[in-house]
Design a protein around this nucleic acid. Structure first.
Lengths: 196, 196
DNA sequence: GTCTATACGGAGATAGAC
DNA sequence: GTCTATCTCCGTATAGAC
């Protein structure tokens, strides 16, 4: 197998394990078992565990960009795009109830560890925030688009946190519905807008 | 120093460290340094680290009960009591920006570790949820008091998570104001209610 | 009740054979 | 590029002196 392929395998396995078990808990032995590589072999591809973390965050940034592009392309206008964001909570409900939000839990862990990679990890949040703000700008809310984006992000984090703690699927669905209601009240459909 | 005092000191130091650094990251050596006790001496008071965690959670449950009682006693009616809950985010903003919500981050960490103490830790959430629901019942929202309580808890978690990631104090204040607006819209002041 | 000394396991990391 | 063997450090936990 080529070095690039092996590297990719390691990063993907680490991504999964960091989400499911957390960064610190995940040992090289765990990633080794998942990739069926020997422990020592890791050091050919990554010098330290922090390098693996950086690669995982880079992977998540890439995937998030792709997902956001995809949502925008597929949606009928910005309001529909925003709904995609909310619906993500329902689509990923099983994983969220078990492991929380991948972005939020990683940021929280790195903040506690006082880890240098925190800034990189929050960049994933920034990616979401900017994208959300763009949709609100397109809906004519340019002045407070940033605040509205943070509000939506805040709700998604709160929902993920409680869903993780209580494991209550009904709660997720109810709160996603509440988000959609909030969207409609904040950005009412106007007759002049043909895309809506 | 009596055994009970020493035990209390250990638990309080552990409480602080678990909040600031996380449960797993905190080593006995850290607690030893904070309490100025020798490492070996811990095992007279606690057989395992998990026992310390259980004691910390019990301490937090006690303190939460006291705080909730205090809020209720001090408040002019249930609406005012609910405002105390929201204001807690502003009062504790410095700690929240640095370390997140003590309850939420502990639950998230224990969920990732698949730790048996998770249920106990979520009991702190349950305490808040019940108390919040009681206030909503008092405001005449008995049918959906439980849902409203979870919604408020959700918001507090989302605010804490993003405040931790972004370190934005303005964001906290804005969202607390939004919560108070939401309270007024969900439970409008009625003339027949003398306490309000 | 409090201390020192120490066993034990598991983590990250390195060296060198293949 | 991948492996095995090995090193060191650190965390939990125990034993026993004082």
């Amino acid at each position: 197998m080529s070095a690039a392929d092996t590297r990719q395998q390691i990063v993907e396995a680490a991504d999964k394990l960091f989400y499911e078990q957390g960064f610190e808990t995940t040992a090289f032995a765990d990633i080794a078992a998942a990739t069926r590589l020997s422990r020592g072999n890791f050091y050919y591809h990554f010098k330290t565990k922090d390098e693996i973390l950086a690669a995982v965050v880079a992977l998540r940034l890439d995937r998030t960009r792709q997902m956001l592009d995809h949502w925008r392309e597929r949606a009928c206008g910005p309001r529909d795009a925003l709904r995609s964001f909310a619906q993500m909570l329902i689509a990923n409900r099983e994983a969220i109830m078990r492991h929380g939000c991948p972005v939020g839990t990683l940021c929280a862990e790195l903040a506690k560890l006082d880890h240098g990679g925190l800034a990189q990890a929050t960049d994933v949040f920034v990616l979401f925030r900017r994208w959300l703000a763009e949709q609100f700008v397109a809906l004519g809310r340019a002045p407070d688009a940033h605040d509205l984006a943070l509000h939506l992000l805040m709700r998604s984090q709160g929902i993920a946190a409680l869903a993780n703690a209580f494991g209550d699927e009904t709660f997720i669905r109810r709160e996603v519905a509440a988000i959609e209601q909030w969207l409609d009240s904040e950005c009412p459909v106007i007759a002049a807008d043909p895309a809506e």
